[in-house]
């Protein structure tokens, strides 16, 4: 297998929390193959992502099955994730799962309304910012970094006292 094929193997590995592939989520940066050694460059959506261990384990398992006998090295590029790295397919998969990606004006993933309100600055996971939709009453999360969070236009409702 060449490096492109190996990259496709890694792309097929899903995120442990949301059912979306690592390439579509923008987590996969590159895969290289030199002298029988595979180097996978990944980036967590957030520095404190608790899933890095599980993601690395899944990547190693998938590569060991697809291309046995190679050394595998997983390199985490810290802070390199950008919302723009999420592919169109990734955005669709996230929307179906009830998520939006930071960087554009957030719309409700369920009813597509733009009448949404940020419900706080910290969500159930460090990479998520919670939102409420005033159109259909749903709650959803926007996935993004702190830099993107600062970019989001909607003011925080109530705040934290």
């Amino acid at each position: 297998m060449n490096a492109d094929q190996l990259a496709d193997v890694v792309a097929g590995v899903s995120d442990p929390e949301i059912d979306v592939g690592l390439r579509d989520l923008g987590v996969l940066r590159s895969v290289s193959l030199t002298d029988g050694r595979i180097r996978v460059h990944l980036t967590p959506t957030r520095l404190s992502c608790p899933a890095v261990g599980e993601i690395a384990r899944r990547v190693r398992a998938a590569l060991a099955e697809a291309a046995p006998g190679h050394g595998i090295e997983v390199v985490w590029e810290r802070g390199a994730w950008q919302p723009a790295a999420v592919t169109a397919a990734g955005r669709d998969a996230l929307r179906r799962g009830g998520y939006r990606v930071a960087g554009t004006a957030p719309r409700c993933p369920y009813c597509d309304s733009e009448d949404v309100e940020q419900a706080g600055r910290f969500g159930g996971a460090v990479c998520k910012v919670p939102y409420d939709c005033r159109g259909c009453g749903s709650t959803f999360d926007v996935i993004g970094t702190a830099g993107c969070n600062a970019m989001l236009p909607t003011p925080v409702r109530g705040g934290s006292r």
């Binding site: 957030r46 520095l47 810290r78 802070g79 390199a80 600055r121 910290f122 702190a146 830099g147 600062a150």
Partner: peptide, 17 residues
């Protein structure tokens, strides 16, 4: 630089809290 910038951005969110 990207890691340092991410630390700065995240700490600014904490600072605001």
């Amino acid at each position: 630089l990207s890691a340092i910038s991410a630390i700065r951005d995240e700490q600014l969110v904490h600072l605001d809290h």
